[in-house]
Design a protein around this nucleic acid. Structure first.
Length: 577
RNA sequence: GGGCCCGUGGCUUAGCUCGGAUAAAGCACCGGCCCUCUAAGCCGGUGAUCGCGGGUUCAAAUCCCGCCGGGUCCGCCA
């Protein structure tokens, strides 16, 4: 709803400039949200230069020419403060905002098309570690945000089921048994790590592994089956972890299909015709425009490479959606640029990339191969346990099952929030103690605000107050319109909460168009803060009847929006904590 | 060596795309608030040469140039 207010301010301001004979084509109105007003314009600064007059004089002049419509408006008033022109919202804005929320947060506008987004795509050589976790959470939050923004979204997990690391797992599994006491992906990692050590120490083993790779590409059925078994074993473990994190993929894409189906060969043939290809021995090297480093698209032994297979995958998926998004680690940045250039040669829609910086440990960067990582499973176990201790301390009135459930929601939520709250291009140095410190977390703060809102609504129903809207919502998911006077919501903390609520769709727009999931995390925190201020300032259940009605509507709206933002963050919203 | 990213109170960050009103939060530290709907909360306080140096501008955390520190990548791994 805030966007509607903003659009109206733009219109009114433009009209004022026109009547004041100050209008310039394409003049930026410089509208910004600030602590001083709901919306303020700095347009007087840019006009000052052109008119050679002080900005404050110009601002005052513009304000004199502002005509706020008599009805059907969201603007309460406009005034100049020095060089700034400040606008504030009116009661109609408050009422419309609340009704929009109660009506189910319908995003205006039409369907926006289909997006194919690939994220996580961890190699099936071990469990997800905290680096993959960042990828997965950033990707999953984007998926949820894009869906809210009105896109149809299809998520892909691109499985590298034929790389050298799988060959190593297969080779290792023939020499040692999987540890069946371990979760599948952890058992695979154990074999993978051990295999790496052996191969590093013995050159003979290297040729054995290479032999496996050759047989695989040649289509040796026995070898292929061994590969598949290893990959599926590992993937089952990874998927169990993802499920625990509330993350789902719509499609699992097998890299090998592009080799077997001939798509990789087709790509190579086409690049030979359209690209600047050189031979280096029997290997094929593609020189790309604007990129210093050439791209090898075929090995000396004729087998395919990851990047070529990725090209085939991207060509295939470009046809499935209107936008293609890849969530990649920073180490893939050069690859992503090469991908774009090569896809342009092939005349294929290029993907958009969300590149995130690395998560490292105090002991150095993460490496599955070296066994230097912290598994997501381990982290989840520990943080849930820590959350349980907190719940037990605070709520010994609850039964065991309930305490465990809250601990799970709080623990996993805290973990996800931590991963997404920081801008993707910030490097993260992982600290176990900090990661587990539930009291310092952002997610429980937001969940707590939601639980408080639920608590008020629950008690209201219990006391028989007229909160049919809440009851109806719980049963049918729809709120009936109800008599309440939004004008009564005039306290500062009430107004601030409502303004914050009204900005939901603006935040969704920004986060989805700029692919910045951390904006949702920030908004969620601010919203919870606004709600807490309201909670402290404004008694709901003990207020006079009319005020109570209005405040109950506000609480209900806050609950709906808090629940929506938590959902976008993939964090469950407990009704009590 | 070259490309890309990061450098904001003791710690973790937001703000930088699009320059403007006292640089915004959390944690930590100090002090206060449970006889009103859950104190996982609220209020107040201490604490910042916005890495350094130039430049552009009426105005720079934000734009430009240089430097320093950290990360990452740099043809047959993925």
């Amino acid at each position: 709803m805030f966007l509607e207010f903003k659009r109206e301010v733009e219109r009114v301001l433009r009209d004022a400039l026109q009547t004041a004979s100050l209008n310039c084509t394409d003049l930026d109105l410089d509208l910004e949200e600030s602590e001083h007003a709901d919306l303020s314009s700095r347009v007087a600064f840019s006009l000052a230069r052109m008119c050679d007059k002080p900005p404050a004089i110009i601002a005052a002049d513009i304000v004199r020419h502002i005509a706020i419509p008599a009805e059907d408006t969201f603007i309460a008033d406009a005034g100049a403060v020095g060089p700034y022109i400040n606008f504030s919202v009116n009661d109609s804005f408050v009422h419309t905002t609340l009704e929009w929320i109660r009506g189910g947060l319908k995003q205006p506008g039409q369907k926006k098309g289909k997006i194919i987004i690939e994220h996580t795509s961890a190699n099936p050589d071990g469990p997800l570690h905290i680096g993959h976790l960042r990828n997965a959470v950033i990707g999953d939050v984007l998926v949820r945000v894009l869906k809210r923004a009105g896109y149809e979204v299809e998520t892909h997990y691109y499985v590298n089921d034929m790389g050298r690391q799988i060959a190593l797992v297969v080779w290792g599994a023939e020499r040692m048994a999987y540890d069946e006491t371990k979760k599948a992906d952890h058992a695979v990692a154990k074999v993978y790590i051990a295999a790496n050590r052996l191969v590093e120490q013995n050159a003979e083993f290297v040729t054995e592994v290479e032999e496996l790779m050759r047989k695989y590409e040649a289509g040796d059925e026995t070898v292929i089956q061994k590969y598949n078994a290893a990959v599926k074993k590992c993937l089952s473990g990874i998927q169990a972890s993802l499920e625990r994190l509330q993350i789902q993929h719509d499609v699992i894409v097998w890299e090998s299909e592009f080799v077997r189906g001939g798509a990789v060969e087709a790509v190579i043939e086409e690049l030979k015709q359209k690209g600047d290809i050189k031979r280096d021995g029997s290997a094929l090297v593609l020189q790309l425009e604007g990129i210093e480093k050439a791209l090898v698209i075929q090995r000396t032994d004729g087998t395919s490479l990851y990047t070529t297979r990725d090209l085939a995958y991207h060509r295939w998926k470009a046809g499935k959606g209107d936008r293609v998004i890849d969530v990649f680690g920073k180490d893939h940045e050069l690859v992503s640029q090469q991908l774009v250039k090569a896809l342009e040669l092939l005349d294929v829609r290029v993907p958009e990339f969300v590149i995130f910086e690395f998560v490292s440990l105090p002991t150095g960067s993460l490496s599955t191969r070296a066994g230097r990582y912290i598994a997501a499973d381990e982290l989840m176990d520990k943080i849930e346990e820590r959350a349980y201790q907190e719940v037990a301390k605070k709520r010994d009135d609850l039964d065991e099952r309930k305490k465990r459930e809250i601990a799970r929601k709080v623990g996993i939520g805290a973990l996800r929030y931590d991963m997404v709250k920081v801008s993707p291009d910030k490097h993260i140095l992982f600290n176990f103690d900090e990661a587990l410190d539930i009291e310092k977390k952002g997610a429980p703060f937001i969940q707590y605000a939601h639980a408080r809102a639920c608590s008020i609504l629950h008690l209201a129903v219990k006391r028989g107050y007229a909160v049919s809207a809440y009851k109806a919502h719980a049963v049918t998911g729809q709120s009936p319109a109800e008599d309440y006077n939004a004008t009564l919501l005039a306290q500062r903390s009430e107004r601030e909460l409502i303004t914050k609520l009204s900005k939901l769709s603006a935040i969704i727009d920004e986060a989805s168009s700029e692919l910045k999931p951390h904006l949702i995390a920030k908004y969620a925190r601010e919203l919870a803060e606004s709600f807490n201020l309201f909670y402290k300032d404004c008694p709901v259940l003990n207020a006079d009847e009319e005020l109570r009605k209005a405040r109950l509507v506000l609480v209900e709206c806050a609950r709906i929006v808090l629940s929506a933002v938590l959902d976008m963050l993939g964090i469950e919203a407990p009704s009590e904590m």
